[in-house]
Structure formats: C-alpha cells, structure tokens
Design a protein around this nucleic acid. Sequence first.
DNA 1: TATTGTTATACTCTATAACTATA
DNA 2: TATAGTTATAGAGTATAACAATA
Lengths: 142, 142
Amino acid sequence: MSVDPLRDFAGYVLRRASAVSQADLSGRLNGLGLKITEASVLVLVDANRRMTQSEISRMLSIASANVTPLVARLEERAMLQREPIDGRSHFLSLTPIGRALAKKAKAQMQAHESELIKHIPASRRASFLEALLAIWGDEDGV
Amino acid sequence: MSVDPLRDFAGYVLRRASAVSQADLSGRLNGLGLKITEASVLVLVDANRRMTQSEISRMLSIASANVTPLVARLEERAMLQREPIDGRSHFLSLTPIGRALAKKAKAQMQAHESELIKHIPASRRASFLEALLAIWGDEDGV
DNA sequence: TATTGTTATACTCTATAACTATA
DNA sequence: TATAGTTATAGAGTATAACAATA
C-alpha cells in the first residue's frame, strides 16, 4: 500500500472534503437544473430586496465580470428581473418562477447540510463551523 | 446591510474556506512554478517508489484522463521519469530536479498549513481534522 | 476619480466518451 | 473481461485587462 503524506495537511483535507461536499450538492441541484453558483444567487436575492450585481459580486466573491453572464442567464430563464435604479445599477428581484426555485434550492441545501453534519458529533459542530469561518474570514491573511 | 442566508450552511462555509485556503497555497506554489495538482503529484511520487499513474488517479481522485497530461508535463519539465514495467504500466520516479522541487513544495505546504491552523485553537485542531476526514471519507454517501 | 456593469479571453480543475493495448 | 493509459472534448469556476457609462 502507498503512503499519502498529503493527509497530514489540513489544507489538503479541507480541499478534498470540500470537493466531496460540492459534488453532493451539485448532484442535488442538478435535479432543479441549477448550478451551485446559480442557486447561491437565487437564495441570496430571495433573502434581500434591492440587491445589485456588485453586491452579489462582493458577497459571493465572484468577479463582477463573471456575475454578468450568470445573472443574464437567470434572467433569460425568467427566474430573475433587473430594475434600473440609476444609469448604471439595477435592483435584482426574483420572479415567481425564481422564488419557487430558490425555495427548492434552499431545501436541497438543507438536505445536503443534514448529510454533511451527520458525520460530525453534535457537540463539535459549533466549533467546526467556527474554525471554517475563521479560515474564510481572514481573506487577506491565510 | 444585506443578509447572507448561506452563512448558516456548513457546506457553503466549507466551500468558501477551501477557496481561501487554496488561493493561499496556490500563491505560494506559484513561486516554484507549480500548480496545486502538480505539487501534489510530486510530493506523492517522492514519498512512494513504484507509483503508477492509476495509483495517482485513485489517491488524488483525479480522472485518469486528466493524469496523462499532468504527468506528461512534469516529464517534459524533467521533474519526473516513467519506467515501463509491463506493456501498459509505468513506475514513476522523480529526477533530482523533481526531488528538489518536491522538497520545496512540501515546505510551502507546511508554511501554508501553519498559517491555516493558526486560526484554530490548538485544543480543537484534532477534532477539526477528524471532521474533515469524516466528510471526505464518506465519498459514496455525503 | 471611483463605481457599475460589460466584453473578451484565458486558465485550472473536473467530467465523459471512445479508443488502444495489455493482462 | 478488466485494467492502464490515451485522445478529444466539454463544462464549471475563476482571473485579468480593457472599456463605456455614470456617479
């Protein structure tokens, strides 16, 4: 049998765990015809009125150049509307179709979540989440 | 300010933490002219004699179709050698150049690791790693 | 001057199908 | 039949530069 020196690195294990997790979520959302980023945008816009693309860009850390085609595609599919507020910005809102999908997407995220944390003793879930947030939070440092 | 309902999902936070972590490691390896997957292969082959591409494929969960160009590029750059063992398999080994780079890559991974776990209280590191391994491990479930 | 949004482009990683050759 | 490796191709996500319009 072979040795895996990478298993000793939390960074590597984090990467692999994230890949497994994403594959699961991706499969669940596939049934709704949504990619992970698309579902994220729907859930985010559903929870906030008066969101702009630049806010999505900042909150999801997606380069604004990549938000444009993402939002455009959701608009094409009649899930989302754009209402001009000044000459350059638009408020985003969901259509009834978009709201229904956001709800279903969130349900899939919840189901995914349940499967995920099932593998962690209940007493350790809080500190697990805390650790992940600490790593995420230090975006200019880690 | 806007609400972020995604922050409540461990799966989402896991994804974001992994992205931040990978960006850091990627930057460190960039100084060596290596991508994360390339460095992973070098470290893995360095730690094991008689590794084949299919073993790399399984251990790193990289589709064999993607291992071919990855290994080919390392061979082109004189970091790695392939020795035929039967008509279809090859044992991989590092050249002196590859070994030197593997060592440097591992040092960067260690440095990355130190930065990463700095954000987690020492008493919680073990259970954090355990949780990630549990998520990773259940590849046919989560 | 800074911000919003856009276009074009390229890179990294991953995924699948179809194939050859060998065991 | 199963395995090792290859080729071609496509998709998802991310990144940057250059730009127009607006604040």
